[in-house]
Design a protein around this nucleic acid. Structure first.
Lengths: 315, 315
DNA sequence: AATTAACATAGCATTATGCTATATTATTTG
DNA sequence: CAAATAATATAGCATAATGCTATGTTAATT
C-alpha cells in the first residue's frame, strides 16, 4: 500500500482550490483525471477523502492531513523545478577554478569578482597549482577549469585550451624604488638590487632565470621567496628588491604600490590560457564561467597591451 | 518540463545508497527501472545527473541538489503513509462528541478520560446541546456522535441509537444535608426544602417536574438554576437545596460530596444513549469511540444499577 | 420544477513503469 | 595486461497509470 507523492500533491491542490474543477484548472489537468485519482486513493486507503453528497467539496480529516503533506511535496517539487532551471540556465551551481598562484591572486580573482557580481548565485571554489598538477586535477575531475600559462603546443590533446592573455613579463619594483622614477635604464643599473623569486617549480621562476640569463646576469641575489602575491607586493613596496611579474599583474594592482621598470625583456613563450577537460559535459554554470572569462579577457588583453606599450616601450 | 516528485525521491534513494543497484534494492525495485528513470530525467533536463564513466556512481552538483529535495519528498510521503495507517487503524484522528450538559460533565467526561488514556493520539472535541439541536448537528455533520437521554421511539429513522444506560433518577442533596443520614424518608419531609433546577428546555427539568407532580408537590421553591454540574454540586454540598439527578451522575461523584436520598421516584421514560448519523461513513477513530463507549457502559450500567438497588431501594 | 455547476463514470489512446535477459563498461585481481 | 567482477545501460515486452473527450449524475440554486 504505497502512496504516490504526486497524488498527495494533487490532493493538496484540490483542497486548496476548494474543488476538483478549479484544482484541475490550477494543475493544468482535466477534472476527470483528478476525480479518478481521488477515487483510486480512496479505494486503496479504504477511507473517503471528501464527505460525499456535499457540494462545496469538503475534505475529511484524513484528507486534510494528507493534503498538508501534499503541500510539502508541492513546495519541494517546485523548489527542484526552480533549482533545475536556474542550474540549466547557468544561474546556479558552482565552478571549481584552479590556477597558478600569482595569476589567480593578481588577475583572475578580480575578474571573478565581476563574475560573482553578475551571477550572485554561482559559487566559485578556487585552488592553486602548476601546469602538470592542474591537468591532473582536470582529468581526475576535481577541478572544472584552470588558468595557467602554457605553451599552446604543450597542451595535451584531450584538454581544451583557450588563450586569454599574451605572456608579457616586466621587471617590477616598489613605486618608491630609486629606479622607479627614471625614464630609461641601463641593464647594469638593475644588477645591484636583490631579487624576489617564486618557488623553483613555477613558471615565473623560470621566467626570472631566463630574463636574467638574457641580460647576462647569471649570479643574482635572492632576498625573499615563497610568499604569495600580497606578501610579495608588500615586500616589493617596502624594500629595494626587484622581481619579474606578468605585466597584467602589475597592471591590476592599485596605483602607487608597485611599478614596472621601463626595460624591455623577452616574452615568455607561455601564454595565459584557460584549460578544461570536456566542454560538452560541463555544467552550464561552468561553461558560463569559461565564456565570461574569455570574453572579459578579450577586452582586458587589449588594455593591458596598450598600457604596456606606453609605459615600458615608450612609443 | 515538469518533474515528477517520485523521481526526486528515487534520485535521493540512489544518491543515499551510493549506487543504482543498492538504491533499487532499498526501494524494492529493479535496477533497470531506476537506470531508465535517471536516463529519462537527464534527457528531459538536458543535464547529466551522474558523472559518466565513473563507477562508484558520482552525483553531479545538480543531482545533489535535486536529491536533497527528493529527501524532503520521501519524508513527507512516509509521513503521509504513517498518518494514513494510524488513521485507518483508528489510532489517529478526532471525534466530535456532543451531549446534554449534566451527563457530559457528570459521566461521559470521565469515560472520555479513559478513552484518551488508551488512545492518546485521538482528539476529542466536546460540545453541549439538547436532543433536537443534537440531531440537527448530526445531520449537518458538525458533530460525529451524541450522548443524550431519549425515548427510543423518538429517535428518527435516519439516526442510529445505542442505549448505554437506563434512565434512573434520584433526589440528591449535599452529604451534610439533614436528610442525608436518615434510613427512610416520608415524602412530606422533603417538601420544605428548596430546589435546584436545570434550564426549562432540558430533560432533567422535565424529570424534576414529573417527580414532584407524582409526589403531589405542584408548587415548589427554586433556590438556584442555570449552573453547570460543578456549580450545582457546590451549591448542593453547601446548602440545604435538593435536586433531581440521574443516579449515574451521583454515582460518579467523589464520596462525601453529594448523596442520593432513599426515596423511590419514577423512572423517566428516556434512556441515555449514543446517537450517530451514518455509521458506515464514520472514520475509524469515530467508530472506535462509539465502540469504546458502548463497551465501557455495558460494565458501568451493571455497577450503577447494583449500587442504586443497595442505596435507594435497600433490598 | 428547471437550471446550473460541479463531480463521477465510461471508453479509448498514450505514456510510464515494471520485469527479465543481455550487452557494456569501470574497476579490481591475478 | 588479461581475466574476473560488479555495476550500469539497453532491449523487448507486458501491464498499469494517466491523459483526454463525451456523457451521465447529482447537489445547490432560481
Amino acid at each position: 500500500m504505497l502512496i504516490d507523492p504526486k497524488h498527495l500533491h494533487i490532493l493538496s491542490a484540490i483542497v486548496d482550490a476548494g474543488g476538483m474543477s478549479q484544482g484541475a484548472r490550477n494543475l493544468g489537468k482535466s477534472q476527470p483525471s483528478l476525480s479518478r485519482i481521488v477515487a483510486d486513493l480512496e479505494a486503496r486507503l479504504g477511507e473517503s477523502l471528501f464527505e460525499k453528497g456535499r457540494r462545496p467539496l469538503q475534505p475529511t480529516e484524513l484528507c486534510t492531513r494528507l493534503a498538508s503533506e501534499g503541500r510539502v511535496i508541492a513546495r519541494a517539487t517546485q523548489q527542484a523545478q526552480d533549482i533545475a532551471s536556474q542550474f540549466i540556465s547557468g544561474h546556479a551551481g558552482s565552478v571549481r577554478v584552479a590556477g597558478t598562484p600569482i595569476f589567480m591572486d593578481g588577475v583572475i580573482s578580480t575578474i571573478i569578482a565581476g563574475f560573482q557580481d553578475e551571477f550572485p548565485e554561482l559559487r566559485v571554489d578556487q585552488s592553486y597549482g602548476y601546469a602538470e598538477e592542474l591537468i591532473e586535477a582536470l582529468r581526475a575531475g576535481t577541478v572544472d577549469t584552470c588558468v595557467c600559462p602554457m605553451e599552446p603546443g604543450d597542451v595535451p590533446d584531450d584538454i581544451g585550451f583557450q588563450r586569454i592573455l599574451k605572456g608579457r613579463n616586466v621587471i617590477a619594483c616598489g613605486s618608491a624604488h630609486p629606479l622607479a622614477r627614471k625614464k630609461s635604464l641601463r641593464l647594469e643599473e638593475i644588477s645591484e638590487f636583490p631579487w624576489i623569486t617564486q618557488p623553483a617549480g613555477s613558471p615565473l621562476y623560470q621566467d626570472l632565470r631566463d630574463v636574467l640569463d638574457s641580460i647576462g646576469i647569471s649570479d643574482f641575489k635572492v632576498s625573499y621567496s615563497g610568499g604569495t602575491l600580497s606578501s610579495i607586493i608588500n615586500v616589493l613596496a617596502g624594500s629595494k628588491a626587484l622581481t619579474v611579474l606578468p605585466f597584467s599583474v602589475v597592471y591590476m594592482q592599485p596605483k602607487n604600490t608597485i611599478v614596472a621598470l621601463p626595460i624591455r625583456i623577452e616574452h615568455p613563450k607561455r601564454e595565459l590560457g584557460m584549460l578544461w577537460n570536456d566542454m560538452e559535459s560541463q555544467s552550464p554554470a561552468k561553461r558560463r564561467f569559461i565564456r565570461y572569462m574569455t570574453k572579459r579577457f578579450a577586452g582586458i588583453s587589449q588594455a593591458v597591451a596598450e598600457r604596456q606599450r606606453q609605459e615600458i616601450w615608450r612609443e
